[in-house]
Each structure stands twice: as C-alpha cells, then as structure tokens.
Amino acid sequence: MRIKSQSIRRLVAVGLVLALVVIFAITTPTFFGARNISILLKDSAYLGLVACGMAFPMIGGGIDLSVGGIVCAVGIISVHLSYDFGLSGYAIIFIATLAGAAFGLLNGIIVAKVGLTEFVATLASGFLFLGLGRALVFKDAGGRAVTRAVSSESYLSFGKNPLWENGWYLITFVWIVVAVGLYIVLKKTKFGLYTYAIGSNDKAAKMSGVDTTKIKIIGFIISGACAGLAAFLVTANLTSSPAALGDGYEFKAIAACVVGGIMLGGGKGDTINALLGALFMTIILNGIYKFGLDSTFVYIIQGLIILLATAFDSQFAKFAAKRRLKEQRLSDITPASAS
C-alpha cells in the first residue's frame, strides 16, 4: 500500500516537533520540567486555537488576515463585560466566541457577497477590528490608556492558574477539544468535505452543486469564533487586555499552519496539522529563551523555519509530480482487481 503524500507531510510535522523536543531536552535540563511543559502547552494553545480556525479559510483556498484584529477587539470587549457589567466568566466565554463569529461573518459577507479577494478584504477588516479594539481601551480622565485588571473569579478560572499544581491549564484542554472537534467537522461533515472541494477546485465544486459562497462564509465564521475564544482565554491568563493584544497573530497563525502542513492555496491539511504547527512554533520560541539566546534570534529563526517548510513543500510537490507521471502511465494498464 502506497503512503499518501498527506500522511508523509504529517509525519514530517510530527518528526519536527519530536526532534525539537529531543534537542531541547538534551541541552536544557529544565525543558522537561512539569512547569515548563505546562506553560509551553498553555502558550501553544492561544496560537493553536487561532491557527485551527485559520485552517478553514486556508483549506478553502483563501486566507484570513483579520484574526489579529479580532483577538484585539474581542479581548478588550471581554474585559469590559466583566469590569463594567459584572458578567460571569461563563457568560463571557460564550459572548466572546459569538462576537468573534460575528466578525468572521462580516469577513465572509465582504468576501463572498461583495466579491473582494480574501487577502484585501480581511487585511482591511483586520485594521477595522484592531481600531475598534484600541478605541475601547480603558482610559483615565486625561485620556491616557490604563490597564484594568479583571477580578472575577469565574473569569480568571479559565486561565490564570493551572488546574492542578504545575499541571495543565484549562485552555490547553479547550484547545485540544476544539482541534479534535474541528477535525471531525472537516473530515466527517458535508461542510468539511465541501471546504476541501472549494480549496481544490472552486469551479468544479460549483458545477457539482456546492454553494461555494456559503461554505466560504462558514469558514470565516469558524476562523473568527476561534480567534474570539482565544482572545477571551488570553485575557483570562493575563488578567487584563493590553492594547497590543493580537498584534501579529494572523501571521503567527499562518506560519503555524504552513509549518504544520496546510498548504497556501488550499485543498490540503487539517486542524491536526495546525495543532502540530502551533506546538512547533511555540516549542522553538520556548527553547530559544531557555537557551538564553538573544531575543533578536527569534525572528531570524522563525523566518528560517517558514522558508524551510515551504521549500520542503515545493520540493516535495516536484517529487510527487514525478511519481504522478509514473502512476498515470500505470493506472490504465493496472488490472481492475489491483488496489
């Protein structure tokens, strides 16, 4: 039985994560400490949630550059809901997710109904959301931005402390549940299968009776909802919403997806790829700090990783094309029983 190229790509992602873990485990004794693992998984979760959402527009052949703006806006809205209106954390987690979904819906409508390209539409809406978030920042009488700490117990229970001593944070579980849930949505539902179809060949999908507009809009809604959920959980961990919250999240999430094996251009990958990618990106940052390397290296290393991942993908595509030619020649003469 042939190994599918997607499986090979997943093995590469897993291999990368494992290789990193081994390197850091050998070189830095504190790496495998329960506390470090716990923090590492928590940090991966924020990025990972956004990346899992991002997977949908990307698999559908598009992109969502507005998630950074959504995180910023929903983060500050969440804090306001607690600080000004005294809502409980349980209510706010739902509102935050819904708010993110609403922003996503807006993206979807701009892209699918107005007909702008995903790149431009979400670039613009991302700025709008970012602006909204900045406008809502708490200010003192002189108009200077100030930080307001969340004090609600139920709010903070989502992120301030691990569930047990040096144990996992709630957000880690939320992340894994969301990633697996969305994996099932992608692989087992009509909507998920249509998402792959539009990412693979939008026109053919339309000809086969797929409502491509609807599928695109739902993809953006999922991306927005994940970003909204992540925003709430980040503020629960930080106990406040800094003005710079969400800055650059869109690119980190895209990088995580790409490194994990979701192709720009669509049609391939899933949320488990996004999960692995986010883990990889976070471990490498964590490791760099543990190594005591200068923080300027972070960007250089991130850049190199993305370059290597995409270079691998393009080389792998060439290899796959060669194999394809061979199979094409064979496929017609293969006896019917072969499989």
Partner: peptide
Amino acid sequence: RQEGFNPIQTIEKNICIA
C-alpha cells in the same frame, strides 16, 4: 480540468461530491 474534477482529491470524494 478547470470545471470537472478536484485534482488533489480522491476518486471517492470526486464521485461523492454531488
């Protein structure tokens, strides 16, 4: 090629899509 099939999907998915 442009409107008929989804190249990077399997035979199964291409048959079932409609």
